[in-house]
Design a protein around this nucleic acid. Sequence first.
DNA 1: GTTCATGATGAAAACGTTTACATCGCCCCC
DNA 2: GGGGGCGATGTAAACGTTTTCATCATGAAC
Lengths: 339, 339
Amino acid sequence: MSARGSSVTIKDVARRAGVSVASVSRALNGHESVTPETRQRILGIARELRYMPHGAARSLITRRTQTIGAVLPDLYGEFFSELIRGMDLAARRGGLHLLVSSSHGSADETAHALRALQGRVDGLLVMSPHADAGLLADNLPALVPTMLMNTRVDGDYASLNVDNYAGAYAMVGHLVARGFRRIALVAGPAQNFDAEERRRGYEQALRDLLPDAVPFVVDGDFTEAAGDRAARAIRESAPDVDAIFAANDAMAVGCLFALNELGLRVPRDVALVGFDDIPMARYTTPPLTTVRVRIADLGERAMARLIARIEQPDHADAGAEVLACELVVRQSCASDGTG
Amino acid sequence: MSARGSSVTIKDVARRAGVSVASVSRALNGHESVTPETRQRILGIARELRYMPHGAARSLITRRTQTIGAVLPDLYGEFFSELIRGMDLAARRGGLHLLVSSSHGSADETAHALRALQGRVDGLLVMSPHADAGLLADNLPALVPTMLMNTRVDGDYASLNVDNYAGAYAMVGHLVARGFRRIALVAGPAQNFDAEERRRGYEQALRDLLPDAVPFVVDGDFTEAAGDRAARAIRESAPDVDAIFAANDAMAVGCLFALNELGLRVPRDVALVGFDDIPMARYTTPPLTTVRVRIADLGERAMARLIARIEQPDHADAGAEVLACELVVRQSCASDGTG
DNA sequence: GTTCATGATGAAAACGTTTACATCGCCCCC
DNA sequence: GGGGGCGATGTAAACGTTTTCATCATGAAC
C-alpha cells in the first residue's frame, strides 16, 4: 500500500482509526480512559499496519530505555559468557534489555563506549579491571546509575568485587596443607585489578605459611595460550615445582594441555589448580581444583543491585560489596595422585 | 553548580559559549563551516561541562543508532560466547555497538524482543532455530535490514546457515571408515533447525554407508547434562554401541564425563565425537573429534554482510549463504585406542 | 560604490512519542 | 432545568538533537 520510505508511525494508526495520536498512545499503553470499542479498533489497526513504536522517540520523552549497558573488558571465553548469562537472567526478570560493549582492555575504547551509551541506557554495569579513577570520572554519564565490578576505583561508587585476595590465600593454604612446598603462580595481566589481588593473596599466604619459600611467579594474561607457555617455562626453569597455581581457569586449562604434552601426569607428577570455576573446570581430566567465583551470580547480583538503584534512587545503595569465594576441591591436586 | 535534575544538554553548552545550538552541533560533529576559535571554545566548554550527546535524541533525527541488535536463542555456553565474539569483532570494525537479546528459546520472547528493538537498532541479526515464517513476518520491523542465522525460514530473507547436514554426514562417514559399526546419535532439541539437519545427515549417511544398520537416536537438548544422561542411557540399553555421535560438543563433554564415571575409556571402549568445535573441545582428555563450525566466523560473517546491506541498501545481497563445516580429527575416535 | 559570491552563524522545523491541559458531552442529582 | 462531576477525547508542548534555510557581514570584482 504505502510505498513511502519511512516506516509506519503512530500518526498513521491515528489517521486510519480516525482518532488523535493521544488516543492511540493511550490505547497501546493500556490507559484506562479509553472506551473498550475504541481500544479494540485501535489495536486492530495497529496490528494490521504492523505498527511498532519507535524506541528512540519513546525513550526521548519517557527518559526510560528499558536497557542496561554493560561495558566489559572482553566478550571472549567462558568467564564472560557466564557473567553475561547472570546479567541477562536478572535483566530479564526486570524486563530490561542488555547492551553489551567490549572495551578490549583499552582505556580509550572504554571511554568511547561509556560516552556512546549516554541516552541509550537506564543504567551502566562497568567492569574495567584496568580503569583508573580519572577515566571513570571523566566519562561516566553524570546521572546514569552505575555499578562497578572488579574495578580498583572505589570513591563513592556502588561496586561489587570478588574477594580475590581471600580466595588466592585459601587456595595456597589448601596446597600447603596437602603437602606441596614449591608452589608456582601463573599470574594474570599486569595492571589488572583481579590479577593483582590474586597475586597479593598468593604472596601473603606464602609469607605466612611457608616463610622459607620464595615466591615463584611467571607472567600470564588470563588466556589458555599463556597457560600453555607458562607450564612449559616452569618445567624448563624449575622442574622441582610440585604445584602450579594458575590465576584463572583458562590458564590452568592451558597448563594442563602443555603438561599432558610434556608427558606429565596431573596430579601425580605435578598438582594444578585454577581460579574462577568456569563450567569447563569440572570436565577436564582430571577435574580441576579451583576457587569458585560464582560468575553468573556475580553478574546477576550486580544487575539486581543496579536495577534496585534505578527503581529506588532514594535508597542509594552505593556501598562496596565483596563477594566471597569458595574452594572447590577436585582431583587435580590430590597429594597422592589417586584422587 | 546546576542542581537541576536533568543532565547537561546541547543548550547548556550553547548558552555558556554564547552561540546557538546549531553551532555547537556543528562544532561537535566536525563540520567545516565554523571558525577554528569558535570550535575550540565550544569544545572546551563541552569538555568542561562533561557534555555527552543524548543518544536517543540523536537517533531520532539521524535515523541511525550505531547499534546492531542480535536476538539469540540463549546466551549460555561456549557456542554463543564464540558467536558473540565474532559479531563483536565485525561490529567494532564498523564502529557499531551490539545489543544482545536472548529469546530463551521461546517464540513469545523472540517476538517481544524483535518489537522492542524497533527504533533502537540499525540492523538485526536473528538466530532462531525454532522460529517459523509467520512469527518473523509478524514481528520483524519492516524497514530494518535483517540477517537470519540458522533459521528454517527462507523466503527472500538474507540468511546465513551452517551446513549441518553435510557436517553430520561427513562425521558418520569418518566413523564408518574407521570401522565403527554401531553408531548412536545423541540428538538436539526437537523443533530445532540445526538439530534436525544434523540428525538428517546422520540418518542419510547411515542409509548410504551402513544399509544394514538401524539408526539409534537418543534425545538430548544441547546441554552437558543431557549428554551425561544420554551416555548412561546408551550404556544401559545398548552396550554394543561402539561410537557415540553427540549432536553438539557440549553434550559430548557431558557424555565424556559420564563415560569416565562409568569406568569406560574413550576411545578404547567407545568412541565419542561431537559437533561445533567449541574452544574446549581441544582441551578435553582425550581431545574431541568434532565438526568445526568456525562459530566466531559465522557471527563475524553474518555481521559483516548485515553491515554491508545497511551501508549499501541497493546492492540488496538478500541471498541465502551456507557455511561449510570441516571435520576435525582428534583422539576421541581413534579406532585402535592409541590416538 | 555597487554587486555578488562566500563563509559563519542563527532560527526554526523535524524526528515520533507521551502527557498535561483543555474541551466537550453526558448523566446525575438537586 | 441547571450545575457539577466525570469520562472520553483532542491539542499542543516537550524531550534533545540535526539540518535546511535565512540572515548577515565580509571581501573581491567590476
